[in-house]
């Protein structure tokens, strides 16, 4: 069986990305050239059920969305640590660690994640229904 250099396995992935984006871009471009263009003021206006738009649409929105963004960053990064751990978990005893070493370590780690979740929960940030939470 033939083997190729390590980095070559990513080559198809890169190609796929290029092709996919080219395809998507091509679609946009093609439809631009194919479709007819007969613009009018009404047509090109913002769609707001036929009314003229009121106010700026990029104004402020609920701070909860920001909260979700922040929580996501934190918890996602925490989740990232679990994948390498999961990959190596079953090999740990073979590396001279005790049977429950991996589990214990993750228990501590998840305890922190859990505390974080509990805190956020208790602070009412996960409560979307009422504004009791202090935001």
């Amino acid at each position: 069986m033939q083997t190729y250099p390590y980095l070559w396995q990513y080559l198809p992935l890169v190609l796929q990305i290029v092709v996919a984006i080219a395809l998507a871009g091509g679609m946009v471009g093609a439809s631009f050239f194919v479709g007819k263009h007969k613009n009018s003021r009404t047509k090109a206006g913002t769609y707001e059920c036929g009314m003229d738009p009121v106010g700026d649409s990029r104004g402020r929105f609920s701070v909860r969305f920001y909260m979700v963004a922040m929580l996501f960053i934190l918890f996602d990064v925490e989740a990232v640590f679990m994948l390498p751990w999961a990959v190596i978990f079953r090999k740990l005893p073979g590396l001279g660690y005790s049977k429950y070493f991996g589990f214990n370590e993750m228990l501590v780690y998840l305890a922190f994640v859990g505390v974080g979740l509990f805190y956020v929960w208790k602070k009412g940030i996960l409560n979307w229904a009422n504004d009791k939470g202090d935001l």
Partner: peptide, 13 residues
């Protein structure tokens, strides 16, 4: 610190 942090939202404002 964790105990305090967890206790904080449990105490009524």
């Amino acid at each position: 610190g964790v105990l305090i942090m967890v206790a904080e939202p449990c105490i009524a404002p």
